[in-house]
Amino acid sequence: MKIRDRLLLAAERQFAEHGALDATLTQIRDAAGASVGALYHHFPDKAELYRQVWAHALTDYQRCFWAAVGDSADAEAGVRAAVTAHLRWVTENQYRAQVLTSARPPGVRDSESNREFMRNVARWWRTHANYGAVRELDFDLLYALWLGPAQVYARGWLGGEIVTAPIDVAPQLADAAWQVLRTDRTDAQEERA
């Protein structure tokens, strides 16, 4: 593994365990087995290292999320798959998930990769809303209804307040998301079937 990757992984763990303010560059460097020079060669300061760790975690999360949604057969499958992917990712990537629940560094939301991800998800949603399968909602409200309960549960689990792993409650949270996001038209179609 390249030294830059080792530094990112070590920083991810240190930031997750100690927080961005309390994690030190010495801890990160020691955990990665890197020299002072190697650390500063790749990252000019702790703020940039944190930004890179956060952006890396976000990219990984978005890749998993979009793979679940983009490959879905219909709106219901996509809504459910997204919640399940979210909870699986958190369960399997605890350090990264902990980083993403921490303060977002400046500029990450405005990155081109984040804007592209948001455009893709919004386009997917609008397509299904136009067919009448899901409700037309402002994207921020949509996000809160779709993933809000899963995020609250995941935060509780990451914080040690909840014992049951997020992936183990995915069916219930996916069902709740679908119930709140589907349209009355979807209900009527199910009754006719």
Results as ranks from 00 to 15, higher is better:
residue 63 R to F: 07
residue 65 F to T: 02
residue 66 W to I: 05
residue 67 A to D: 14
residue 69 V to S: 03
residue 69 V to N: 07
residue 72 S to H: 12
residue 73 A to V: 09
residue 76 E to D: 10
residue 78 G to A: 03
residue 79 V to M: 07
residue 81 A to S: 13
residue 81 A to G: 06
residue 81 A to Q: 04
residue 82 A to M: 10
residue 82 A to F: 06
residue 82 A to D: 07
residue 83 V to I: 12
residue 84 T to S: 13
residue 84 T to H: 11
residue 86 H to F: 15
residue 86 H to G: 06
residue 88 R to M: 09
residue 88 R to S: 12
residue 90 V to I: 15
residue 92 E to L: 04
residue 93 N to Q: 11
residue 96 R to H: 08
residue 96 R to I: 00
residue 96 R to G: 14
residue 97 A to H: 05
residue 100 L to F: 07
residue 101 T to I: 10
residue 103 A to G: 13
residue 107 G to E: 04
residue 107 G to S: 06
residue 107 G to W: 04
residue 108 V to H: 02
residue 108 V to T: 08
residue 108 V to G: 01
residue 111 S to Q: 11
residue 112 E to Y: 02
residue 112 E to L: 13
residue 116 E to V: 08
residue 116 E to N: 12
residue 116 E to H: 10
residue 119 R to K: 12
residue 121 V to C: 05
residue 121 V to A: 06
residue 121 V to K: 01
residue 123 R to D: 15
residue 123 R to N: 14
residue 123 R to P: 02
residue 124 W to F: 11
residue 125 W to Q: 11
residue 126 R to L: 03
residue 127 T to E: 08
residue 129 A to Q: 04
residue 129 A to R: 08
residue 131 Y to N: 07
residue 131 Y to F: 13
residue 133 A to L: 10
residue 133 A to Y: 13
residue 133 A to H: 14
residue 134 V to I: 13
residue 135 R to V: 11
residue 135 R to Y: 00
residue 138 D to A: 12
residue 138 D to Y: 08
residue 139 F to M: 14
residue 140 D to S: 14
residue 141 L to S: 04
residue 143 Y to H: 13
residue 144 A to Y: 06
residue 144 A to L: 11
residue 144 A to C: 01
residue 147 L to K: 01
residue 148 G to P: 06
residue 149 P to M: 06
residue 149 P to A: 06
residue 149 P to L: 11
residue 150 A to G: 03
residue 152 V to Y: 00
residue 153 Y to R: 08
residue 154 A to L: 05
residue 157 W to F: 03
residue 158 L to A: 07
residue 158 L to S: 03
